[in-house]
Design a protein around this nucleic acid. Structure first.
Lengths: 109, 109
DNA sequence: TTTATTAATCGTAATATTGCAATGTATAAA
DNA sequence: TTTATACATTGCAATATTACGATTAATAAA
């Protein structure tokens, strides 16, 4: 089938999975890390930085934009992407709640 | 191609992506949450809990086991899975470092 | 033994993802 | 204008993922 049965899960579970999924490719991790490093916003040197073809980077950027984790703005004839700090914070809250589940009660077989 | 070019990225970037990827499906999120909730370890009622077919759950469990985030132990004729607390902690460190990148310097276009 | 029960594995269909060449679009520079 | 530059979009091939029926293996119960 290849089709995730999202209706079987809670909105939060689907949200966590959606965020995680977008981080589930090293190119997108690398793009985000680069955008954090270049603390002002930065655009298309990502292609040189990452070393994948331009359409490939463009596609990864699209997925990040789609979740609103980054935003792009046209400056001249180039396009400037940057982290959406507010959305990143919200995402972080969701993900950390998942990661911080109580380990102390774990009592393995 | 459908094949991730891992060689273009650092070991850490690939590691982050690998962990994120396994969280990138709501069934695996649900499985982990259930294992946390049932603080002692629990086995095949995951199939009833989640509502996907047994082979599907088994496959998701395999992926989690593969990353060592959970472990299974045979008890009688059933199989008891539980969170691997040590590995979870290590994973959490890696993921939180990624999530906690400095937002204060972000100065969008 | 024989029969249930539990869960892994196999095989396969449907769909998604990754990557890129080719092309299109829009602005900048000449 | 014409040409260059920057990036999105399209189309496609290769591969991965998701899901499950059927089967298998192994233990438990009868």
């Amino acid at each position: 089938m290849g089709l995730t049965k999202t209706e079987k899960f809670t909105a939060l579970q689907n949200e966590i999975a959606q965020f995680a999924k977008v981080f589930g490719h090293p190119a997108r991790v690398a793009i985000l890390e680069h955008l954090f490093k270049i603390n002002s916003c930065v655009c298309g040197d990502l292609v040189n930085e990452i070393g994948l073809a331009q359409p490939t980077i463009s596609q990864h950027l699209k997925e990040l934009t789609h979740l609103d984790l980054i935003q792009g703005e046209i400056t001249g004839n180039s396009l400037c992407y940057c982290i959406n700090a507010q959305k990143w914070s919200k995402m972080k809250t969701v993900m950390q709640q998942f990661l911080n589940q109580d380990l102390t009660a774990i009592n393995c077989c």
